[in-house]
């Protein structure tokens, strides 16, 4: 039961291998073995979304995924969001629209927004609220988070024109 298994996956474009026991949670592997501490733990029970990462092109809560389930997975964390040309539009949006205060929910929010805007590039305000409903914030009241996501949507669609 405590036998370790080798698990290989890609994080932020880099291939990594870790030896883990089956019960190790992906969020702990990311934070403690790979030192990617941007992904946070808020509730332990998959309710808050602070641990949201992009997993094979879908948003998931890394507190409720076993690392052994990540074999061959492609994972993007907040650390992988900015590109060589600078911040990702969602990062820019959160800064421009005051979409964060204490910063603890922010990485999860950004990772969800990053995927959400690929699922729905031109969302209405209500769609932003529904699309971001897996992430809790205690500081902002969401109003500026909605604006931040809309800012990013505009920026992204301007870019793709």
């Amino acid at each position: 039961m405590n036998d370790k298994q080798e698990v290989t996956f890609t994080v932020n474009g880099e291939k990594v291998s870790v030896d883990v026991v089956p019960r190790e949670l992906l969020v702990h592997t990311l934070r403690e073995r790979l030192n990617l501490t941007g992904t946070h733990i808020g509730c332990d029970s998959s309710h808050c979304g602070a641990c949201t990462v992009d997993f094979n092109g879908r948003s998931v809560k890394a507190c409720t995924v076993l690392t052994v389930q990540a074999q061959d997975a492609h994972i993007v964390t907040v650390e992988g969001l900015a590109g060589p040309s600078g911040l990702h539009p969602v990062q820019e949006g959160f800064q421009q629209e005051h979409g964060l205060q204490c910063g603890f929910c922010t990485p999860g929010m950004l990772m969800r927004a990053y995927r959400f805007l690929q699922e729905n590039p031109n969302p209405t305000e209500d769609q932003v609220r529904t699309g971001m409903a897996g992430n809790l914030c205690r500081c902002t009241g969401y109003q500026n988070i909605v604006k931040a996501v809309q800012y990013a949507a505009n920026k992204l669609s301007a870019r793709s024109v």
Binding site: L36, L81, G103, F104, P107
Partner: peptide, 21 residues
């Protein structure tokens, strides 16, 4: 004025107690 705290938080470079190793 836009916030000066944000740069580290939006890049996952915050430093909270549980990040300390």
């Amino acid at each position: 004025r836009r916030r000066k705290e944000d740069a580290r938080f939006i890049q996952g470079k915050g430093n909270y107690v549980d990040d300390i190793k």
